[in-house]
Design a protein around this nucleic acid. Structure first.
Lengths: 233, 233
DNA sequence: TGCGTCACTTGATAAATGTCAAGCCGTGGA
DNA sequence: TCCACGGCTTGACATTTATCAAGTGACGCA
């Protein structure tokens, strides 16, 4: 297994690792390694014990969960960020499974090392608090989105968020529609119809290309709220 | 405002405060005070900036959220525990509102003090990590519950969890049915019908008294999973 | 070039869930 | 004791969402 040394700087620049002691960081990097995965490879399975903290360097990873033969997509992890920090720290079973969406390069930090450094490095412990708070609040927002909105409203707000990210009224979906449907908590068929349902509010769909032709109208329908849709705070 | 001194020990016994330095704990208690609230009083409103970390000493508190005239219940806080830690630490707007359900006694710790102690007391910072991990995982489980299950299945699993908590096949609901409905993500009418729908699986409902007459059958239908329903890990 | 695969779409239908309105019933106050 | 209120239930109905089945179209590979 190749050591993750070449990606040292990218890892160090993450808020989670930026403030920790050099010696702690060295200890983490020493046991780490990097691996390349093809698309659609299972990385972890829910219920298992966390062996590694994962860092996506390139590509993307789908976090999902199954029950009773059903499956739902919970999040997409894009570079450069970590995933499943809480399970690693608590040494508790994964609550989600993870698979690559595309060819991905991933750094693996042994969970034991992460917990050892957590125990000794105070700056790292505080950085984890910040990260976990962020994750927690993101999931709470997601819950509100699910419980307070219809699927049409969720889609409308999703599109507005994509617009904000790209700073443009025309953009491509970064996700397969089937996964987007699962993420938004609906079936692909329903998503297809939801896109049609947003046409009257100025949403044009061509394949995976989206054009928002009447922002005011769409915003009026979606009624976005920073307490649900703002993913920076 | 009366000082929270009389409840010192109950606070100190919480995992969040158990390991911190005596001097840090003193600093927190110094600025704290305790307040009694009647039922149905708004404690905080989503969007506001967190002035205090709240600790429920007695009574109970409903955490809920609103959007577009709709409202949903997200959690119930029972003694003795804190709520809205993440917002306090990040000094970011509350994502949920809170109101008392019954007559409640609540300790208020000024957010500034909590953040100051967080900055200086390493044991406290680590305890916060544990607490936040727990909260994060609870919300993730809740999301899975919502996305992977029908309302009937959510109710069945809720009842099984209550059974586990009370260690008894017969118990009283600890919550108004209307709030339970909101918590489970359905309307009161739907909940009423869901109870009827569980009759064939051995669930008897009389007012707010529940009797599970066929645990095996109900369990077979509910198919509980520790990765969704176990609220201890 | 052609063919299979797969995501996506569309239509028909069914199931789940919400809405509205009315009635029931226990509780607390006058 | 009686009445008013609120929570709960029930029925009828509407809406939302899922399911099933068939068809379209793009893409990759032989």
């Amino acid at each position: 297994m190749p050591n993750a040394e070449p990606y040292r700087q990218e890892v160090r620049d993450l808020a989670l690792f930026a403030d920790m002691e050099d010696s702690s960081f060295e200890a983490l990097m020493r046991g780490s390694y990097v691996q390349n995965f093809p698309p659609r490879i299972d990385l972890i399975t829910e219920g298992e014990t966390p062996d590694f903290l994962h860092i996506v360097i390139s590509g993307s990873v789908d976090l999902f969960s199954s029950w009773n033969g059903r499956e739902t997509s919970l999040a997409t992890v894009r570079p450069v960020s970590t995933f499943i920090l809480a399970a690693t720290i608590k040494n508790a079973p994964y609550l989600m499974s993870a698979r690559t969406l595309e060819k991905s390069r991933i750094i693996l930090l042994p969970s034991e090392d992460v917990r050892a450094v957590f125990d000794t490095d105070n700056a790292f412990a505080r950085a984890i608090v910040t990260e976990l708070s962020q994750c927690y609040r993101a999931v709470v927002k997601n819950t509100k989105n699910l419980k307070l909105r219809t699927s049409l409203e969720r889609l409308a707000n999703y599109l507005l968020r994509q617009r904000g990210r790209t700073q443009s009224d025309a953009f491509d979906l970064t996700t397969e529609k089937r996964r987007l449907a699962s993420f938004l908590g609906m079936t692909p068929e329903n998503l297809s119809r939801a896109f049609k349902g947003l046409e009257p509010y100025g949403v044009k769909v061509t394949g995976n290309h989206i054009e928002i032709t009447d922002l005011k109208d769409l915003t009026g329908f979606a009624n976005p709220s920073p307490l649900i849709d703002d993913h920076s705070s």
